[in-house]
Structures are given as structure tokens and as C-alpha cells.
Nucleic acid binder design. Sequence first.
DNA 1: CTCATAAAGCAAATATTTTGCGTTTGTGTT
DNA 2: AACACAAACGCAAAATATTTGCTTTATGAG
Lengths: 189, 189
Amino acid sequence: MPIKEAVRPGGRSARVQEAVHQAVRELQAVKSRDELTVPQVAEHAGVTPSTIYRRWGNLAELVADVSVERMRPDDDPVDTGTLAGDLQAWGEQYLEEMTSVPGQRALNDVMASADNGRRERCCRYSESLMATLRERALSRGEAAVPSLDRLVDGVVAPMTYRLLYDRESATAANLRRWIARALAVEDVD
Amino acid sequence: MPIKEAVRPGGRSARVQEAVHQAVRELQAVKSRDELTVPQVAEHAGVTPSTIYRRWGNLAELVADVSVERMRPDDDPVDTGTLAGDLQAWGEQYLEEMTSVPGQRALNDVMASADNGRRERCCRYSESLMATLRERALSRGEAAVPSLDRLVDGVVAPMTYRLLYDRESATAANLRRWIARALAVEDVD
DNA sequence: CTCATAAAGCAAATATTTTGCGTTTGTGTT
DNA sequence: AACACAAACGCAAAATATTTGCTTTATGAG
């Protein structure tokens, strides 16, 4: 067995997982979603198909697992000085990412997972980011900072909705409107 | 004719489609999602597997097709006399439907479809319903009727978001809040 | 270092999906 | 009403994918 590279960390499981994830990423760059098969991924990863089946169950779960990684925000959100600015900056980047071809595929793959937990995890990312921006605004002493729920309902939800069902409307201009509305507090609770 | 989404209206096709849909519904009542297989559905419907594969491609698309039907609102929305009331009445019923076990499965099945068109169609239902309620409010002469977009962003999007990612929050109480906010017009556009 | 355990490999057994080809059945035309 | 045409289906063989029982190997604990 030719070893591709020095395998330092973790156990064998970790190595296999990484090899398989890597194989999926590489193959996805070349093949369309429904040309991808488990045996193919297995071979490319230097692994037996049964390993993949036992560990992930099926292709849908595997690609979902890979895509959920891809969606984790890697760097800290930029600080523009105001909550509105921070939201807009983050949102625009997120929209751009998710309307791209690979972004859309990742979104689809995650949504196709039978495992609700996986989907939820993916969206916790956005929520915890909202919480971060909100804390930041509070510590800056901004007035009228909306509740977390209001940010989620007012900004994340419409964004997600449009990304999933109406890509045309997932634009920076609309984002600006969602943010403006969410920040117009005068609460009705 | 590049894309064929419409099945031949009258004849054998329609009969086969109905038989297959029916078979899926009956089997789904008894078996969990991943016990369901194409050959099984085919037999139960008195049809050859290849027919199903050629027509729907795979099991995921088939069950999505069935579920999307299930989600079409069957009866006209009740008229409570006010837009707020109509929204609340419709929303509560919708939430109840979609948080039920079969409702959640239908939702999952639709989301798992690789065919974006199918997902979109499913959400057009809610949008056109919003349009209906809105027209009704206008013809009643209600003041401050929000735009369609605002209704979608303010009510449908949060509802959908919570149904998909945070079932606990998909409650009638929250619905009331979403509606109240959406109706507090003072627009910022 | 040895042992127990969990995960992976291997290969045979199943199950599924795909495909070529002949037949049936609506649809539109004369 | 009869005809031609094409879409959709059935059938069955071939190709793939998935499952499963058993063996082997790595890892971590004692």
C-alpha cells in the first residue's frame, strides 16, 4: 500500500475520515453530483466501499458531512464600527458564497441530509455569528440593539429563505432592507 | 421540447403516476423512510421498476414529488375579517401540519430533492396564499397593508426557517409576533 | 508488552439501477 | 374511423451498488 503522505496525527479512523473527505472534495470539483458514487470515492481515497457505508450510511450523508464543514465560517467577521455595517458586510460575503455554484451545491447537499442534526448544526453557525455581532454592538454602546431572535427572524431567515427558494432575490440590496427593518426596533412584543 | 415536467394529461401515464403516488403514500404509512425502495414501490403499484427510474430518476425525487402534492393547500383560507386574523389562522394550521410527524417527513423529502424547481414550487404555494390574503385585505379597505415581499420576508420566511432548523420555536405565539411586526408598516424602503 | 476493542479490509451474496429492444397506448391528422 | 407517430411502459439481461460474515490490523488501557 503506497502511502500518500506522512500520517502523523490521530488514529487510523481520523486518517480514513480525512482521506475520504478529501476524495469527495477532489471528485466534486470534476464531476457533477449524480456522477459521484460511493465506490468511486472509496477507490480515490484508497479505502474499501464497505468502510464508507458502515461509517456514513450512504452517499447523501457523506457529501452532507463534507459540505457542512465547508460552511463553517473560517475567519472572524470584519468590524465596520456599526451593527448595521457588520451585518451588511457579513451578509454580502455569505450571499456571494452561497449563490456561487459550489456554494449552491453545498447548500443542496446539506439540505438533502436525512440527519436533521446536521442541518441544524449548519445554521447554528449563522446564529452564533449573530450573537457575536450583537455582543460587539452592545459593548460599543450602540442604542437600540435588537434581540437575537429578532436578528435571526429579520435577517437570517429571509436570507436563508431566498437562498433556498428564490435565488434571484438573494441580493445585497434586499439584504440592506432586511437589516434596516430589523434595526427599526420600536418593538411590538 | 427540452424540458418535460408535464405528464401526458389523460391516459396511461396519468394512471401509472397515480398508482405509483398511491403506492408511495400507502407504504410510507407503514415503513420508515429508509426501508422504502424503488422495487418495492414498483411492485406495490403494479409497475416495473424501470418505469419509475425512467420517470423520476430515483427514490428521492419520487417521494419529493409525492410530498409536494401533499403540501398544496387544499381548501381556501378562512376569512376572519382582518389580515392579521387570516394570517394567524392560516399560519397556525400550517404550523400544526408541518410539525406533525408526517408533515416533517414531507418537508424533509421535499428539501432532499435535487430538483430546485420542485422546492420552489412548494414555496410558491405559501407565496400565492399571501397574495390572496393581501388582495382580500385590500378589497376590504384595510389600512396599512404590507407589500407581498414584506409578508414573505416577515412571516413566511421566519416560519419556514424555524420549521427547518428550530422546530421548538415554530409556535403559534411566535407566529403572532411575526405577524405583528410585519403589519407595523412604517416602511424603511 | 499483552490484551481487548473498535474500525477496516476482503470477498461472496444480495439488491439496486441501467439499458436495449419490442409492444402498447394516447394524440393528432386525414 | 383509420392511420401514423411518438411517448411511455414492460421485460429481462447486464452492470453497479450495497450489505454482510469473517478476518486482520491499529490503538489505547492496563
